[in-house]
Every structure is written in structure tokens, then in C-alpha cells.
Computed example of a mutant assay.
Amino acid sequence: MSAGLDDAALAAHLADYAGRILLLVRDSGLFTGKALGKAGDQVANQFLIHALREQRPDDGLLSEESQDTPDRLGKRRVWIIDPLDGTREYGEGRSDWAVHVALAIDGVPTVGAVALPGLDGGILLATDRAGPLPEAAARPRLAVSRTRPAAEALTVAEKLGAELVPMGSAGAKAMAVVRGDVDIYLHSGGQFEWDSAAPAAVALAHGLHASRIDGAPLVYNQQDVAMPDLLICRKDMADSLLAACRNPHIGGKDA
């Protein structure tokens, strides 16, 4: 691990190398299916938590793959990681999985990096690498779960005349908005802080809107780490999307 990296560079470095490790685990040929997903989760998590404890020993840490402790609640700076977002997609040999590394400061997703190693050549998006957004499509495109699209997303898509684009992990869907492959990622039905902290940080750094679906800000490092819903979209779409989400008859689940 390179010494002396600032927070943003460290997040990007960790996400990148965890992604490389996951590719090595997959390419070893020793695991398939659920066993591959489990091995990838554990190996990437060990790398990330050991690296963060070495590089930022005074910061808090929350990982999907490690036992949570109350120690982080008293800290202003907390790293929130998902070593393998989209375990199922990874185990199936798909490309739509991700690595999330984020730093929340006073509950705000301030620094983040999302690696998409399964895409050709690998892609890394980070808060210190923000660039201009691609042009929006003439017809809005909305990323949804490839296996169980949320009723909320389906209803909003119908209201706006949006095209549905199925894909895998939360990170892949959120980064599809940043990359310009879709214009909206609307999630409901339950996630956790590690699912959205890094994607939200990267999206905000790129000038996108990121909030709860009622418009409330995203707040991290809570005692209850559930984060039930999420909206990431272009800013000029936010008001209409939030209005559509207020329909009391909408309900459902997503992933």
C-alpha cells in the first residue's frame, strides 16, 4: 500500500486493488456459483479492513462482511465499505458487480470510489475524478433490478414515459447514471449503508442528485444501518421524480 495518500486517493486505490483481487479469485477457477461469491466477499473484505486499519487507524469502520461494533458511532470519520456489491452477479460470471469504498464525515458521504472490475478493462469512478456528465437521452432511462424491479420504479417509469434498463448490483446501477448509460436509479424495498455510501458520494461529486425518495438527505454512520430507499438522478429530473414518488399507492421491493 502506498503511504501518504489523501482520503480520496486512498478510497480509489483500495477500490481498484480490491477489484483486482476479486478478478484473481474468479479467474483462479477454484470456485463457482455461491462458493465463488463467498470467497470473493471474504478475501476482498480482509484486504480492505486490514488496509484501512493500517492507513487510517483512528477512523471508524463499517463493512457488510464484518461484525459491526458501536465504536464507530462516536467517531466523526467512518469508512463504509461493501467489498463485493452484487455477489450473485459476480458468482454468475456477470460484469455488473462493484466494489464500494466510502468515507462519511459527520454522516455525510464525503469521499467515495466505486470500482467496476468486471467491465472491459475495468472502470473506476471516484469523488476526485469527477468530470462532465454525458448528454441525457431524449427518453429517460431508469435502471432497475434485473430480477425483481420495484413497483415504485415501474410506476415512476410509466408516469415519465421512461425506458427500463435491467441490471445487477446497486453500485452498477448507480454508476450507470454517472456514466450516462441511464438517467435515473430509483431504489426502494431495503438496502444498507454500505450499498449506497460510495455510490452516493461519487454521484454527488459528479453533480448528480442523491437523496432518499422523500427528498430527505442521505445520512450515514447511524446505529441502525438500514437505508431503505435511494434516488440518484440528474438534477433537472429530481423534482418530477420526487413528486412521482409521493404517490401513496406506490409500493414494492427492489435490489
Score class of each variant (00 low, 15 high):
residue 109 P to I: 04
residue 101 V to A: 11
residue 80 I to R: 04
residue 86 G to Y: 01
residue 51 A to P: 03
residue 97 W to K: 02
residue 95 S to Y: 13
residue 51 A to T: 14
residue 106 D to V: 09
residue 117 P to T: 02
residue 52 L to D: 05
residue 59 D to F: 08
residue 76 R to W: 04
residue 75 K to R: 14
residue 73 L to H: 06
residue 121 G to E: 03
residue 75 K to T: 04
residue 106 D to K: 13
residue 77 R to H: 13
residue 74 G to V: 04
residue 106 D to L: 06
residue 123 I to V: 15
residue 58 D to M: 12
residue 73 L to D: 03
residue 82 D to C: 02
residue 81 I to Q: 01
residue 81 I to V: 15
residue 100 H to F: 12
residue 122 G to I: 05
residue 77 R to I: 07
residue 107 G to L: 07
residue 113 A to K: 05
residue 54 E to V: 11
residue 50 H to V: 06
residue 101 V to M: 10
residue 49 I to D: 05
residue 80 I to F: 11
residue 70 P to S: 04
residue 61 L to E: 11
residue 95 S to R: 15
residue 61 L to A: 12
residue 100 H to M: 05
residue 120 D to G: 03
residue 87 T to A: 07
residue 124 L to P: 14
residue 67 Q to G: 12
residue 76 R to F: 00
residue 71 D to F: 12
residue 51 A to G: 11
residue 52 L to W: 03
residue 115 A to Q: 04
residue 73 L to G: 00
residue 63 S to C: 15
residue 60 G to C: 12
residue 97 W to I: 04
residue 107 G to T: 07
residue 68 D to S: 08
residue 116 L to Y: 07
residue 87 T to E: 06
residue 72 R to V: 10
residue 109 P to G: 09
residue 83 P to M: 00
residue 53 R to L: 15
residue 58 D to P: 08
residue 92 E to A: 15
residue 67 Q to D: 14
residue 81 I to K: 05
residue 121 G to Q: 02
residue 112 G to A: 06
residue 71 D to R: 15
residue 49 I to E: 12
residue 66 S to Y: 10
residue 115 A to V: 02
residue 105 I to N: 09
residue 87 T to M: 10
residue 106 D to W: 11
residue 91 G to P: 07
residue 117 P to I: 00
residue 56 R to H: 07
residue 96 D to L: 06
residue 57 P to S: 12
residue 89 E to C: 05
residue 57 P to V: 13
residue 119 L to Q: 13
residue 94 R to A: 14
residue 118 G to N: 05
residue 85 D to N: 00
residue 102 A to W: 00
residue 84 L to A: 05
residue 83 P to A: 03
residue 116 L to G: 00
residue 119 L to E: 13
